[in-house]
């Protein structure tokens, strides 16, 4: 019997457009692919040569075949990955979401992306997908972000480190995937408080050498 996963479930963990409907595809096949990889590796002797070792030949063929299959089919067999860097084109119009804080005077201020660590800010923004989620869920996440933001700002005011990723390696820590915005590194220009968060949908249009915002809609806000 095939166990079907609810299609209405959030699409996290699946490539957009490549929804995997069965437990077989989403758990068993990838797990078997990885388990086969490990088992075959353990059968290879140290110092084996392809010309003289059948287990090594099988292992090499397996790695090449599985990795090529995962990559070219787009199938999720991680750690055999279907790499998809910038597999899209940007047109002349589009939209993105923007999250800003409001200080005690009601002025909009940029957030410091480090405050959400150990989560990456870009990933959290991806989670605030108002087109597929109900607002109550998004508001729940926004309240969590507001709390982390307020804690991060308090750390910045005290001169303590903001964020977790640089705790061991300092400035040599591996950067997050998309550029970190760190306005709170400058202690002289810190907002006093962040009392509210606002989530906007921003629509833009590119014409020649310029892009401009054509519309900005408030999706939701949290705070007192």
């Amino acid at each position: 019997m095939r166990l079907l996963i609810d299609y209405r479930a959030p699409i996290r963990g699946r490539e957009r457009g490549l929804v995997m409907p069965t437990i077989y595809l989403s758990i068993i096949l990838p797990t078997l692919a990885f388990a086969g990889f490990v088992v075959l590796a353990s059968l290879v002797g140290k110092g084996d040569r392809p010309a003289f070792s059948a287990p090594l030949r099988v292992f090499i063929c397996y790695v090449v075949a599985v990795s090529m299959y995962a990559g070219l089919s787009g199938r999720d067999l991680w750690p055999f990955a279907a790499w998809r860097y910038v597999a899209y084109a940007v047109g002349d119009t589009g939209g993105f979401t923007k999250l800003v804080g409001l200080d005690e005077t009601g002025r909009e201020v940029p957030l410091d992306t480090r405050t959400l660590e150990p989560l990456e800010f870009a990933a959290v923004m991806g989670d605030l997908d108002w087109t597929t989620k109900d607002i109550a869920r998004i508001n729940g996440m926004m309240r969590f972000i507001l709390k982390r933001t307020q804690e991060g700002l308090a750390h910045a005011h005290e001169g303590r480190r903001v964020g977790e990723f640089s705790r061991l390696l300092g400035r040599f820590a591996a950067p997050v995937f998309h550029v970190a915005v760190t306005p709170w590194s400058d202690r002289d220009h810190l907002p006093n408080r962040i009392e509210q968060l606002r989530l906007y949908a921003v629509y833009w249009q590119a014409t020649g050498e310029e892009a401009h915002i054509v519309k900005q809609e408030l999706i939701t806000s949290v705070g007192p």
């Binding site: 996290r12 699946r14 998809r84 990456e120 991806g126």
Partner: peptide, 10 residues
Amino acid sequence: ALMNVTTPWG
């Protein structure tokens, strides 16, 4: 990669 929409390849 908990909050990502894809597996942790990146």
